[in-house]
Amino acid sequence: MSRLFFREALARAMAEEMDRDPRIVLLGQDIAEHGGSYGETRGLFQRFGPARVRNTPVAEEGTVGIAAGAAAAGLRPMAFITYFDFLMLGLDPLVNYAAKLRFKSAGQLSAPLVVKTTAGAKGQGPTHAQALEAWLMGVPGLTVVTPSTSADAYGLLKTALRAPGPVVFIDHKRLFPLGGEVPEGEVLVPFGSAAVRREGRDVTVVAHSHMSVLAGQAAEALAREGVEVESVDLRSLWPIDWDTLAASARRTGRVLIVEEGQTVCGVGAELGFHLRELVPEIEVARLGARRAPVSSSPALEGYVIPDARRIAGAVRDLLRRPRREREVAR
């Protein structure tokens, strides 16, 4: 194991995969000499040269469109969208072209493309801080992954760079200042595999991306009150690891789903509903951002976005509900 910053784990995954597969090219704003908006491509331009590490203008639709076309033509492009908010501009080539290409061509064509983008609130205000991953979960043909640790950033990105179709790889601004242990060897993380970060018998807290870090902090605080939280980090938003989620729900009987985005038609809405179909006797609750844009004011940002204290409060509320009996639910 070696301890790496999140950006270093990403850089290691890219460098190893670019060595392995000459078809991989990187496209994005400031990714060449500058080394990436978050330092995640540092050294790659110097190592792989301008043909494989290309700066693009502030033109997200063009960047994703070129990447999708290049993927269809035989390359393996990875497109960088600095802020998730601006992937909106690239949704047409991503959703209408890349995600559907395999279906429209009866499997004759594919678009092995990775779109890497960064979500989340860290002082950038209403249009540079959104967590919109739920929008993408309903697009057939798209894989959506959201690592929360350096090891998963490494392992999921390597899997993404070998995947047959378009993958949206969503990280988070608040993960970049953190370090994490990464195995020395090549340990890939498969899609559709959630991680149980902490075992507990009282309640399951499901989260992804930075909210998994906060869920861990909430679990520690609740442990001091005698509440045993089972923390599940989704890692993949599509495909979803229903087996791990349902097994945990059966063990604890209570599930809180936490997300940084809006709860309306959010990750928790989808997961909560289907988990109740799989395990009808469970109690389910959701926690997400309050229904307001993310503010540039730290106080208002903190008010809108869930934190460890609010997660712990939502767990306490859920534990106060009477336990649903199997007979009543059926």
Partner: peptide
Amino acid sequence: DLGEGVEVRV
């Protein structure tokens, strides 16, 4: 004030 949970490498 680097932030809660933030880590640095010596």
